[in-house]
């Protein structure tokens, strides 16, 4: 396979053709934070936390899906990049309960984000949905990374019980017409729990143990 050389943060990196910037960076141990990325799923490129600055590009590019080119010059920690990452984390903190998302909490610390900055005066609390014997859905913790929908659909289970519903900020994970899970095509494989990064999906026993 052909090898590509590029520069990441001033360091020359050689990687196989077709690699993403994220893969290339990890080869050199250069850490780029991710949220919606999952090793075994198709990267949806939606959280934009892994954006980097690429010379010649008008906007920042998501490193998880941007394929390297020969001679590409990439900066992973420019002020523009850092501003975007910090702001994304601050906005997330304002819209979801991240107390059980250790990786995100770590990023918040690392990028010096202020979790209180955008927090609304009146927080709207959504309660956990306990509608089946197996697992609990607490969408107050959901960051809409969409991994649960991915695994429920084409990526793993092909059971098609979950979707992103709504639009914009009011997007949410839902079942068919919002029905309780036992009335849907859900087979309770729980593969969605496996990929949930924030504890929004949790085995019921763990949930009951925690409260």
């Amino acid at each position: 396979m052909k090898e590509i050389s590029l520069y990441i943060d001033g360091r020359m990196v050689k990687c196989p053709e077709g690699s993403t910037i994220l893969e290339a960076a990890r080869l050199k141990g250069i850490e780029i934070p991710t949220i919606c990325f999952h090793e075994s799923l198709t990267p949806p490129g939606l959280c934009r936390q892994c954006v980097v600055e690429v010379e010649g590009a008008r906007v920042l590019l998501p490193s998880c899906i941007t394929i390297v080119r020969e001679g590409m010059v990439v900066t992973t920690d420019s002020p523009r990049v850092l501003r975007a990452r910090k702001t994304i984390l601050e906005m997330l903190s304002a819209t979801a309960d991240l107390s059980e998302a250790p990786e995100l909490e770590q990023q918040i610390k690392a990028f010096g984000a202020d979790p209180q900055r955008f927090r609304p005066e009146e927080e709207i609390k959504t309660g956990p949905i306990v509608d089946n014997p197996f697992y609990v859905r607490d969408y107050g913790k959901c960051i809409l990374c969409g991994k649960c929908v991915q695994v429920c659909s084409e990526e793993v289970q092909l059971s098609y019980a979950l979707t992103v519903a709504g639009r914009g900020f009011d997007s949410r994970i839902s079942t068919f017409y919002g029905k309780p899970l036992p009335d849907t095509s859900c087979v309770f494989c729980g593969n969605c729990i496996e990929v949930c990064p924030t504890g929004a999906l949790k085995p019921r026993k763990e949930f009951e143990n925690d409260i």
């Binding site: 075994s40 197996f134 697992y135 793993v156 309770f188 729980g190 593969n191 496996e194 085995p203």
Partner: peptide
């Protein structure tokens, strides 16, 4: 939980194994 990345199920389980 599924043992991450291990054959034959590579992270997948069904309701019986998981619960």
């Amino acid at each position: 939980a599924a043992t991450p990345g291990k054959a034959p199920n590579y992270g997948r389980l069904c309701v019986k194994g998981r619960f």
